[in-house]
Design a protein around this nucleic acid. Structure first.
Lengths: 332, 332
DNA sequence: CACTATTGTGTAATCGGTTACATGTAATTT
DNA sequence: AAATTACATGTAACCGATTACACAATAGTG
C-alpha cells in the first residue's frame, strides 16, 4: 500500500503539500497539483482513513441502533439511514440491541472506542445515562421514533397522536360501529401516543370503553393473541386499530381463522406503513414517512458532527393514511 | 479522554508496560498490573481503537454487503452475521448495493480505505475483479448464498439443488399432479440450482414440460405476475414451487385473488425459510440454515483474518423442509 | 561461582496521516 | 522603494496506540 510519503517523494514535494492537495485546503500550485495527481494515479494511492481519523479527523462512521433488524420496521429505517449516509460519504454500523440494556451499554462502549462520529438510535430501551455518556464523549445522538423526556436530545417523531386519531376516524368513516384497539408496549412513547389518539377520537363517539383496548407487544403473535381475546369479549366488534402493522397482521390472521372476513365483517388498520405486499387482504395503515425520517436523522447527525449552527430542534413528521383493502367499504 | 500516557504516568510505569498489560502479552509484574488496574479504573480509561488499528492491529470491523436490506431475506442474514460478530467483539458495517455494480465498486473502495478486516458478501452482482482487488489488499472475503465460479473464494451455499428436489418431491407426496415452477433470476447460481432440482425431480414423473416454468425476479410482485401467467397457460395446475418465499407469497396472492384456495385447490411451497407469520395460509418452505450460514461466514472470515490454518473450503449446508398450511394435504 | 534463562521494564521508532509554524518568493499597496 | 499581502512549500510535532530492542534483576543450572 502506497503512503502519502511515497507520493510526496515521487512527486518531489513534501507530505504537507500532498495533504493540502488531498484536503483541498491551503495553497497548492498548479504544477504541484499536476505532479501529485499523476503520482497518485500511478501508485493507485488511497489515503488511509485510519490514519486520518487518528490525526484528529472524523471517522465518517455513524452507528444505527435498532432493537432487532428482523422486525420489518427496522430494515426500512436502516435503508433510509444507510442511503443518506452513503450519499455523503458516511458508513453505517448496524447494532441490534434486542431491547437489552446490558447489550446496549456494551455496544455504546464499543462505539465510543471505535470513535464513531454519531449515533442514530431507534431503540426503545435506551437509557438516559447512556446518552449522557455519549454526549460526554461529544458524540452526537439523534433519536428516531422515540423520545427521552427531559433530555437535551434531538428526536424525530411521527405525529403518532394525530395518526391514532386518523386511523380511528377512518374506521368510523368506513362505517365501523365498534372499534377495538390493540396497543403496543406502554413504555414506548410513540405507542402511548397512538393509543391516546384512538381514545381521543373514539371517546367523541360516546362508544368508548376501556375494555376495547388490549395491551400487546408489537409482534404478529401478540396481535394474533390480542385479537382472539377481543373477539371473546366483543363478538360484535367491526373495526380494529392496531398500533403497528405487525400486530394488525396478527389480528387479520386471528379474524380469518375465526371465519370472519376482512374487510366485509371487520375492518383492520395498522400503523407504520411497512411493506407487506404479501398480505391478503393488503393492509390499510397510517404510514410514517420512514424514509424521510431516516434521511433527516442523518442530516441532523452530520450537522451536529460538523457543529453547524442549527436550532437544535426535535421534529414532528406528518403521517399519512394509506387505504388498502383491509378497510374497504363493502358495497351492500 | 485519558490516553495510555496518562495511565502510564499515574501508575508510575512506562507506556510499554501498560500496553503489555492491556494486551496480555509480555511480562508484567503483579505490582505493576495492580497499579495499572487501579489507574484505569480511576481515569475510566479506554484504549483508543483507531490508534490501535493504525499501529498495525486490526480494526475488528467487517462489512456485510447485501443487495437490499428491505428484502426480508437479508435482515435474517444480517442478524446472523451481526450476532456472530458481536460475540467475538467485531462490529458490522452494512452496505446496500442495489445490485448496482458501480455502487458496489465504490463501496469496496471505501471499505478498503476504512481498513475493514473482512467482507461478507451476499450480493449477486459482485464482480470477480472486485474480489481480486480486495484480495490484493489482503482483505478476506466470504461469499454467502452465492458462488463465483473459478475463483479462489470461500463460498457458503445451501444445497439448493437438493432443496429444489425436496420441494418438488414434497408437492408430489402431497398429491399434486401438475406442478409449476416460478424460478428466480438465472444469473444467480442458487436460483439456477433450485430450478435444476425441480427439473430433476419432476422429470422423473414424466409430467415435465418446459412451459411449466416461468422466469421471475425473486419479488412478491414477480411471483404474483408469474402465477397469473401460469394460471392462464395451465388452468389445471395443482402445485407451485417458487424459488423463494417472496415469489411464493406473490403466487398465493394471485391464486387467492382468482378464487383458488390454498392448499385445497393448489399447494404452494417456497424456498429460504424467512419469517412471514403474517401470511395466510402460512407458507411451507425449504428453509436454509440462514443463521448457521451467517455464523459460519463470520467464523470463516475471522479465521482468515487471523490467518488460522484451515482447509480453505467452501461448504454446502443442508436445507430443511418446513411443512406449513400451504401444502397441507386436504382430507377429502 | 560463573553462566544462562527467565522475568520485568523503559526508550524510542513506527503506523500514516494532519497541521501549526517558519520561511521564501511574487504581486500589491502606499 | 519600502511595506504589505497573497501564494507556495517544507519541517517537525502530534494523534494514541504497538513493539523491537536494550538493559537490569532474579532464578536456575552445571
Amino acid at each position: 500500500m502506497a503512503t502519502i510519503k511515497d507520493v510526496s517523494k515521487l512527486a518531489g514535494v513534501s507530505v504537507a503539500t500532498v495533504s493540502r492537495f488531498l484536503n483541498k485546503n491551503g495553497y497548492v500550485s498548479k504544477e504541484a497539483a499536476q505532479a501529485i495527481t499523476e503520482v497518485i494515479e500511478k501508485l493507485n494511492y488511497r489515503p488511509n482513513n485510519i490514519a486520518r481519523s487518528l490525526a484528529g479527523k472524523k471517522t465518517a462512521t455513524v452507528a444505527l441502533m435498532v432493537p432487532d433488524i428482523l422486525n420489518p420496521f427496522f430494515p426500512e429505517i436502516a435503508r433510509a439511514v444507510e442511503d443518506a449516509a452513503h450519499e455523503i460519504g458516511y458508513t453505517v454500523m448496524l447494532c441490534n440491541t434486542d431491547n437489552d440494556a446490558d447489550k446496549e451499554a456494551k455496544y455504546i462502549e464499543t462505539l465510543i472506542q471505535k470513535q464513531i462520529d454519531g449515533l442514530i438510535i431507534s431503540s426503545y430501551t435506551i437509557k438516559p445515562e447512556q446518552v449522557a455518556k455519549l454526549q460526554k464523549h461529544s458524540i452526537p445522538v439523534v433519536l428516531m421514533d422515540n423520545a427521552l423526556p427531559g433530555q437535551d436530545i434531538i428526536s424525530l417523531l411521527s405525529d403518532n397522536r394525530e395518526g391514532g386519531i386518523a386511523a380511528t376516524k377512518h374506521l368510523i368513516a368506513q362505517g365501523c360501529k365498534k372499534i377495538v384497539h390493540i396497543c403496543g408496549p406502554m413504555h414506548i412513547t410513540s405507542s402511548r401516543e397512538r393509543t391516546l389518539g384512538y381514545e381521543d377520537a373514539y371517546k367523541k363517539t360516546g362508544q368508548f370503553m376501556p375494555s376495547l383496548i388490549t395491551y400487546s407487544d408489537f409482534t404478529v403473535k401478540g396481535g394474533y393473541d390480542s385479537m382472539k381475546g377481543l373477539l371473546e369479549a366483543h363478538p360484535d366488534l367491526d373495526g380494529v386499530f392496531a398500533s403497528n402493522d405487525l400486530m394488525a397482521a396478527g389480528a387479520v390472521k386471528a379474524l380469518i381463522e375465526r371465519g370472519i372476513t376482512v374487510p366485509d365483517d371487520v375492518k383492520v388498520i395498522g400503523f407504520d406503513g411497512i411493506h407487506m405486499e404479501m398480505m391478503i387482504p393488503e393492509l390499510s395503515t397510517i404510514a410514517q414517512p420512514i424514509y424521510e425520517i431516516g434521511k433527516t436523522a442523518m442530516e441532523y447527525v452530520v450537522a451536529l458532527i460538523n457543529q453547524e449552527p442549527m436550532e437544535k430542534k426535535s421534529r414532528l413528521f406528518d403521517v399519512e393514511l394509506i387505504e388498502k383493502q383491509s378497510t374497504k367499504k363493502v358495497s351492500s
